[in-house]
Amino acid sequence: MCLHQPPCPAANTAERDTAHIVASYPEQGWSLLCNGIVRFDDTGELLPDGQIIAPCRTAGVAA
């Protein structure tokens, strides 16, 4: 439950990525957002309901 004012966006909204970071583990490549989302450094996400959001890949960028 978010205690920020105004409250952070819910995990099922388009603005979900703007929620505050409550735990950060850069050495492991992920952060926990206030709305329960686990956001990975590769831009992938794991939502609280278990849904996976695939990483955004930019076409034409060499690895």
Rank of each mutant, 00 (worst) to 15 (best):
M1H: 15
M1D: 15
C2P: 10
C2T: 09
L3K: 13
H4S: 13
Q5N: 15
Q5F: 12
Q5V: 07
Q5T: 12
P6H: 03
C8I: 08
P9S: 07
A10H: 10
A11H: 02
N12C: 06
N12A: 15
T13A: 14
T13H: 15
A14I: 02
D17L: 07
D17E: 14
A19I: 06
H20G: 04
H20F: 12
I21W: 07
I21D: 07
V22P: 03
V22Q: 05
A23N: 08
A23L: 11
S24W: 05
Y25V: 08
P26H: 13
E27D: 15
E27K: 12
S31H: 12
L33V: 03
C34K: 08
C34P: 14
C34I: 10
N35K: 02
N35T: 07
G36C: 08
I37C: 01
I37F: 00
V38F: 03
V38W: 01
D41H: 06
G44D: 02
G44Q: 03
G44N: 00
E45P: 01
L46W: 02
P48M: 06
D49L: 01
D49W: 06
Q51L: 05
Q51W: 02
Q51P: 03
I53K: 10
A54H: 03
P55Q: 09
C56S: 07
R57M: 11
A59G: 03
G60L: 05
V61Q: 12
A63F: 06
A63V: 04
